[in-house]
Design a protein around this nucleic acid. Sequence first.
DNA 1: AGATTATTCGACCATAAAGTCAATCTATGG
DNA 2: CCATAGATTGACTTTATGGTCGAATAATCT
Lengths: 200, 200
Amino acid sequence: MTNLDTNRAFNREAQYAAKRRAVIRSASGAFRRRGYHNTSMVLIAQSLGLSKAALYYYVKSKEEILYECHIMVYDAMDAAVKSVRGQGDTGLGKLQLLYGAFAHLLTRDGLGLLADVDSLKGEFQTTVLKRRGSIERAVTRIVKQGMSDGSIKKADARVTVYFLMGALNWLNVWYEPGGRLSGEHIADAFVTQMSQGIAK
Amino acid sequence: MTNLDTNRAFNREAQYAAKRRAVIRSASGAFRRRGYHNTSMVLIAQSLGLSKAALYYYVKSKEEILYECHIMVYDAMDAAVKSVRGQGDTGLGKLQLLYGAFAHLLTRDGLGLLADVDSLKGEFQTTVLKRRGSIERAVTRIVKQGMSDGSIKKADARVTVYFLMGALNWLNVWYEPGGRLSGEHIADAFVTQMSQGIAK
DNA sequence: AGATTATTCGACCATAAAGTCAATCTATGG
DNA sequence: CCATAGATTGACTTTATGGTCGAATAATCT
């Protein structure tokens, strides 16, 4: 096996992985715009110039696509959580960085939080709920930290977090990529609004 | 035709209307919990102790049920908007009343904002979007009023409103009637958070 | 070039769930 | 107690769509 061989083989795998990702990304957009159940496999296929059958070469089921869409977002969010570790002096400072990062993910980066968790079954649903819970807990932890260090006003942390996450989730419905409002603009506005809402 | 007749006839109609409402209400809850597409007509029927066929005596289609669910919420919200007319001295004061009323609707009163607008077609969808737009415009108007009278900090009113409406919409996902958090509690927290987020 | 493997497709199958309908049961009025 | 209108049903049809499969095509290796 020559070096070229492994390069080729690698290329193959990379090609496959790239196309698989393309399927997920394309579906993700369609799901966000039209909803999971209003998006047929044929439509996803067409938007990629493929036949429906070809899709199943890259993916085991429609549900798996939805699952991967969720995972994609939560991976990005986990990365954001990790990236603010150490940064930001107070809890509020940390939260500002994190919340801004979230807003960027969901606008500039074209990712979309999906609400369709109920369409996932069994293991898929369990995992996704776990991931969502994990994110929420991370945010809650920061909020509580802020309440301890005096940067955030004391209140029910759970409600606070749900309030903030809700605003983010609603982006799916109204944010249009390339529209009047840029991701930066929105992220700024959200961070400001969030900060003032909870700062002490 | 005696007086009794008209009473009876009225009773019939009232009975019919009441049962129809029961169908909508029951479906509304199921839609909120499981999602529109994950809720079959058979399930709705069962939860009312009826057969699926009987449902179609009260309702023309599943889509019509979804439509009515939306309308129910928007009617309630319109009423809330009307009820704060005249009340509240500043824009912020008005908004506090309204936002609290909204939060109450969506918790205590068991109504649920649905995001499934994409599952509605044609006239149905148009109307629902119109109603949603109308509510958003009403809220925007109040926010702008607040920005004029100095009670609300100047910012992009549209983004502000979306932010606030998003937090409300997310209630569907996490609020559980009869759970640890009462509707009152949540409404209070939301109003506080909202106020501080935008007050000058 | 020929063999082998990766990719794609047309045509089909399976099924869940919406929607229909003639027949039945139930209440109301005379 | 019969007649009529209201209410409900079981059994059926229809349809949309997710998913499968063997064959065909394209790419890669020796």
